[in-house]
Amino acid sequence: MSACTTCGACCASFRVDFSVHETQSEGGSVPDGLWVPVTDSIARMRGTDHGQPRCAALSGRIGERATCGIYEWRPNPCREFEEGSDACGQARRRHGLSPLSASFGG
């Protein structure tokens, strides 16, 4: 099992901006209603621009059982995020979780 199916820290740590062309209304797959416009060309996942970000598509409890409700339709920044990367470690620390190398042997 991937650490990502129980973690969710990245979904509650960073702002997620992406091209409006990835939105449903522009022919992409990110469901309308889960993003907000930033500019004419940039969209943002709803909830990720708060002081304590939490993506509107995230379900569950961080560090225990967290899942993305739109995993198949998530935007590129989410697709490109790497499990075990420095950013992953930063997000996990923000939520009091141990690094993946210690807990998952990664």
Rank of each mutant, 00 (worst) to 15 (best):
S103M: 07
A56C: 11
D49T: 15
C78L: 02
P53D: 13
S25Y: 08
C4N: 06
R94T: 13
T39P: 02
T48Q: 11
P31I: 10
M45T: 12
G28N: 01
P53E: 13
A9E: 09
S98V: 14
A102Y: 15
S59I: 15
P99F: 09
H50V: 15
G51E: 15
G8K: 03
Q90T: 14
C11Y: 05
L100D: 10
T23P: 04
S85V: 07
G89D: 14
I70K: 00
P31Q: 12
M1T: 12
G51Y: 15
C10Y: 00
G69H: 04
A57D: 06
F14R: 06
V38E: 06
R65W: 00
R93T: 14
L97W: 05
A56M: 08
V20D: 09
E83C: 03
L34M: 07
F18T: 03
A12W: 04
L100R: 05
R74P: 00
C4Y: 00
S85D: 08
R54T: 11
R44K: 06
S98Y: 13
G96V: 12
R46C: 13
P75D: 08
A43F: 00
D49I: 15
S103Y: 10
S25A: 07
A102L: 13
G28A: 01
G27C: 01
L97G: 07
A87D: 14
R93D: 14
S29T: 15
N76C: 10
A56H: 11
E72S: 10
P77A: 11
A66K: 01
G33R: 00
M45V: 14
G106I: 15
W35P: 01
G47E: 07
R74E: 04
P99A: 12
E83I: 10
G105K: 12
T48E: 07
C4G: 01
D17G: 06
N76R: 15
G89C: 09
L34V: 11
T67M: 02
E26A: 12
I42W: 03
A43I: 05
S85M: 05
W73C: 05
H21P: 03
E64W: 00
E22S: 04
S19W: 07
R74H: 04
G27F: 03
E72W: 04
A12S: 10
R79W: 10
S19C: 06
G96Q: 07
S103Q: 12
P75Y: 05
L97V: 12
M1W: 08
C10I: 02
G105S: 13
F18V: 03
E72N: 07
C10R: 00
C55P: 05
R74D: 01
W73E: 13
R44W: 07
C55E: 11
S2Q: 12
P53R: 08
A57G: 09
S25K: 04
F81L: 01
R92D: 10
E22K: 02
Q52D: 14
A91D: 13
R93S: 13
A66H: 00
E83G: 04
S25P: 04
S101Q: 15
F104M: 11
R15A: 14
